[in-house]
Computed example of a mutant assay.
Amino acid sequence: MMKDVEIRKCVAGDEELLALVGKATFLESFAGMIFGQDVVEHCIVQHSLEKYREWLASTHYEIWLAEIGPGQAPIGYVVLTKPDLPLEGLDPKDVEVKRIYVLSRFQGAGIGKRLMETARNFALARGYQRLLLGVYGGNESAIQFYRHMGYREVGTRTFQVGEHTYQDLIMGWDL
């Protein structure tokens, strides 16, 4: 079944697929870890059709979608953009992995790795020298995945979800 997973560049009209996967993966990852109402509000605002429509229309975002077969069920995605991280020494050759999500049922099957490699290949082709990302400090499985890919800790930030503040790690991968 995993051989049927295709990764493709997103286009206008994919905002519904992105919003669906974004909400589902955020809920399954953080329900019970982050205060309940905060998780719901975050999904409503940060994974809205309007947010993804805006990103798809912008030249500042690059988004790829993982699907089971062409035009089939979406199971994950990755978003690249200009870094928006509180990190000293940001360079024009840095690019941020704003989001990378894979439905839990498909984690461990190499989909996240393929999405990350897609982002890395794009970054290398455009002359970027480092991928950056922020990850919730309590999400050990994600942190381990990023370390396995080659990321290392380069800073921290506070991250607001609803009424509560959380600590994120900022990780970088030198290309």
Rank of each mutant, 00 (worst) to 15 (best):
N121H: 13
Q37Y: 00
F30D: 08
Y101E: 01
Q107D: 04
E163A: 12
A125S: 10
D174C: 09
G32H: 04
P86R: 06
G138M: 04
P70H: 06
G36W: 15
W55R: 10
V135A: 11
H164R: 00
Y52F: 10
L103W: 14
T81Y: 08
F35V: 14
V79S: 10
R120V: 06
L18K: 01
L20Y: 07
L131T: 02
E50I: 05
D38R: 10
A24K: 14
H47Q: 11
Q46D: 05
A66W: 12
R8N: 02
K51M: 08
F122D: 10
G112F: 11
K23P: 09
I170N: 08
Y52N: 09
D14N: 05
G110H: 05
H164T: 00
L103E: 14
M171C: 00
R114H: 07
E140I: 11
E67L: 12
G13Q: 02
L132D: 06
D168V: 01
V102R: 06
I44K: 09
E50G: 09
T59Q: 04
E88A: 06
Q167G: 11
D94N: 03
L20E: 14
L169F: 11
I143C: 03
Y61L: 01
M33G: 03
M1C: 15
V95R: 00
Y52G: 02
F159V: 03
G162R: 02
Q144D: 13
D38F: 10
A125T: 01
G134T: 01
G162V: 03
F30Q: 07
